[in-house]
């Protein structure tokens, strides 16, 4: 398999544009996927293969785990154009032109580093099978809602199943990341303003029915 660095996001999108249209499964032609910032050429996969299958079996990307293949367990979670998705519910050929980010592509610094470090520090990893998916989901959550409360955290992680930890250590890891990042951000007026707006939205939209 060939892997060439995608020159930033634009290169990935353009490449995919040219490759777009339709695909057949005669094995002679191929399509490209932007995986963790690299343009990967996919040869020989069936057009009906899921992104999960192509990532693992064709491209050898084992940072996504294969468990339920029904979109229920979250072990195969990736970011697809920045949105958390179960890669088993996406057809790989239809992901041509999108940016696919696995846990391996989240980066070695910043929030993703903190999430990984706190999963270790808090003992949120036992067998480790669900961990890549959880790290992607937690990083996605804390990117969108750095100050998510307990209920928001539980709701945001409901699509990821862990059979070992009972979730307690995972929740502790999320709170530890929040504490660490919160300390870093303290005094940052912009961030706290954003958080406040989010809180107001939640209160408004989760409130009871419109009053009479």
């Amino acid at each position: 398999m060939t892997a060439v660095p995608a020159d930033g996001l634009d290169a990935g999108a353009e490449g995919a544009d040219r490759a777009g249209g339709a695909a057949g499964a005669d094995g002679g032609e191929s399509y490209r996927l932007n995986v963790d910032g690299f343009l990967r050429t996919v040869n020989g996969a069936s057009i009906g293969d899921s992104l999960l299958t192509v990532l693992r079996d064709t491209l050898g990307v084992t940072a996504v785990k294969d468990a339920c293949e029904q979109g229920r367990c979250g072990a195969c979670s990736v970011l697809l154009d920045g949105r958390l998705a179960a890669s088993c519910t996406v057809l790989a050929a239809d992901a041509d032109g999108t940016r696919v980010v696995t846990v391996a592509g989240l980066g070695g610094a910043g929030l993703a580093r903190a999430v990984r470090a706190m999963f270790l520090a808090e003992g949120a990893v036992q067998c480790g099978f669900c961990t890549p998916g959880f790290v992607v989901a937690v990083t996605d959550l804390l990117t969108r809602h750095p100050d998510a409360d307990e209920e928001e955290i539980r709701e945001a992680l409901a699509g990821n199943i862990c059979r070992c930890t009972g979730y307690g250590r995972i929740l502790a890891a999320v709170r530890a990341v929040q504490a660490e990042r919160g300390a870093l951000r303290s005094g940052d007026a912009h961030s706290s303003g954003e958080t406040q707006r989010h809180g107001e939205t939640q209160r408004h939209s989760d409130g009871g029915p419109d009053g009479w």
Partner: peptide, 12 residues
């Protein structure tokens, strides 16, 4: 016929 079943073409 692979894991992808019988799907042989995709249009986008």
């Amino acid at each position: 016929v692979t894991a992808g079943g019988t799907t042989s073409a995709m249009f986008r």
